[in-house]
Nucleic acid binder design. Structure first.
Lengths: 144, 144
DNA sequence: TTGATATATATGCAAATGCATGTAATTGTC
DNA sequence: GACAATTACATGCATTTGCATATATATCAA
């Protein structure tokens, strides 16, 4: 049988869920209050922006953002409708495609960042000093 | 202006989101694979079970589980339909109500725990030792 | 090659969530 | 006490997500 989680594990787990839920709710709420789309849109655009040619395959977005395939498909639908990205054929594999960030997508990234940044500082950055933050990041890394 | 988040904050934030998403997905998936309901149901039942009389007001569940009011209302609907809990009038405030765990609710808690426990150990407990887990719990506490 | 299996993405339908608003009871003010 | 404001919970409607399956292409085995 699998060994049992310690009490500490249970405590850490409960706090992981709650700290994340609380911070995410606060950030999403700040974004919405400024008229911005959900954080997931920012994540997608940022992943694309960081690529050499501003493109990624849906499959790769799925892996990086830990989303389900059908949700990626529909997220791309919605973002394409707003002209934030576009679908391109993928020559090397006829089943696949490429998703490319558009100028409007890049513009949205720039517009969202000041709000996102301030929100992050308010709800996360201000709660721990930098060395604690580094420690937290290192511990979380082990869960990945 | 609000000061800007450090790079370390941004790293920790990204990992908080991903570590939580990954672990939660794994745990929910294990629960579902064994035919159990979502984790939120367990959370509700556990909060009720821990109360002296097995009851809480919806408002209190909302606060503790960080859920939105309308979601609590509907979660209670669904769980009541499965006879896991029941709504009772709340004499001290005619607007409010009490939610009480039933025997079936207690039974479900017991049945879910072995699966939940093993999953937690697999996806969380096994990744850090106890003193790291304590450190993680302490850091996360500061975000709450 | 050809057929079987696997992979990448899309989609219909059901369930859950978000958003705005409704209803009923309570509290505060005069 | 009357009434305005607030609080607790519910609900209609739109959006999002989950689940199963469809479609098209690619890979592999004989």
């Amino acid at each position: 049988m699998t060994s049992k989680p310690s009490d500490m594990t249970i405590t850490a787990w409960a706090r992981l869920l709650k700290a994340q839920a609380k911070a995410l709710e606060a950030v999403e709420s700040d974004l919405k209050a400024k008229g911005h789309p959900p954080l997931a849109w920012y994540d997608v655009l940022l992943e694309l922006k960081r690529e050499e040619n501003g493109t990624l395959r849906p499959l790769e977005l799925e892996k990086r953002l830990l989303l389900k395939q059908h949700n990626v498909s529909r997220l791309i639908d919605r973002m394409e409708q707003k002209n934030l990205l576009k679908r391109l054929p993928f020559a090397e594999d006829g089943r696949g495609q490429l998703v490319a960030i558009t100028d409007q997508g890049q513009e949205l990234l720039r517009r969202m960042w000041p709000t996102y940044r301030a929100s992050l500082q308010d709800h996360v950055g201000s709660k721990l000093n930098d060395s604690e933050m580094a420690k937290l990041a290192a511990l979380l890394q082990h869960l990945l």
